[in-house]
């Protein structure tokens, strides 16, 4: 059993430690359109066969995730946990209903449809707890993708999110799994960004610059725990096979 595992992009693996050590938690950030979501899927595909891959999706549906993977010619043998959909069903749909009752008035039939016994079931679900619980149940060797942390940062206290991140990291480290978390760049406060970066072992940033009439893409290795010498910038190409990288 090797103690390293592939991130899914050959040149990036080489630039790190010929892969990433098991037990690592990786953060991928970038502005919209830089390929963060695709990175997450490529990373997921790289674990198929050797690891149990679980993909926690907060915005895309199960099918969307697998379809995207199929389009790039990757295997799709992963488990997708659709937190976004759960959230919609439990919270957003309910909020929608509530606003209807508030606007249009409450009718007797709306009350009759509901039984007292249902009340406990609709108590607020903490999706952050759902997430950490789901992760704590995973059996090694596992590969976790969380796409994305933004969802949790939007709905929960930052302290709670950071504490959940620490739990995920600890569980990953202890069980020699591997975890990748995505987060939008420049949306949240510096405090949160540096808080998350402090927890993870590797931070990768995807960058897209305009050069004349073209985009130029880069992969920035911003942080490698205990290996500041490994931080560097790779040039990045995205084509129908996914993301690839070249040393500059």
């Amino acid at each position: 059993m090797t103690d390293k595992t592939s991130i899914g992009i050959a040149e990036l693996d080489r630039s790190l430690m010929n892969g990433v050590p098991k037990g690592y938690t990786i953060l991928v950030t970038g502005a919209p359109g830089t390929g963060v979501e695709l990175f997450a899927k490529q990373f997921a595909a790289a674990g198929i066969g050797s690891e149990n891959v679980t993909y926690f999706s907060t915005t895309e549906g199960d099918e969307d995730v697998k379809k995207a993977m199929e389009e790039f010619g990757w295997e799709q043998d992963i488990r997708v946990v659709n937190i976004g959909k759960m959230y919609y069903e439990k919270v957003l749909a309910k909020n929608l209903e509530v606003s209807k009752y508030r606007q249009e008035g409450l009718k007797m039939r709306d009350i009759l449809q509901f039984k007292m016994s249902q009340i406990d079931q609709t108590m607020d679900i903490n999706f952050l707890t759902t997430l950490t619980y789901g992760i704590s149940k995973l059996k090694p060797p596992f590969r976790i993708v969380l796409d994305s942390l933004d969802f949790f940062l939007e709905y929960y206290e930052e302290g709670d999110v950071l504490s959940a991140m620490r739990t995920i990291k600890a569980h990953t480290q202890l069980n020699e799994g591997i975890a990748l978390v995505t987060m939008l760049k420049g949306v949240f406060s510096n405090r949160i960004e540096s808080g998350v970066q402090d927890i993870v072992d590797v931070t990768i940033e995807l960058e897209r610059l305009r050069e004349g009439s073209e985009f130029k893409r880069n992969i920035l290795i911003r942080k490698v725990r205990n290996h500041p010498e490994k931080t560097k910038i790779l040039s990045c190409v995205i084509d129908d096979k996914g993301i690839s990288a070249k040393s500059l």
Partner: peptide, 16 residues
């Protein structure tokens, strides 16, 4: 004669 449980009203109105 109608009986209504207030917790259901709370629930429906999102008064949680």
């Amino acid at each position: 004669l109608v009986f209504v449980d207030m917790p259901i009203i709370y629930e429906r109105l999102g008064l949680t």
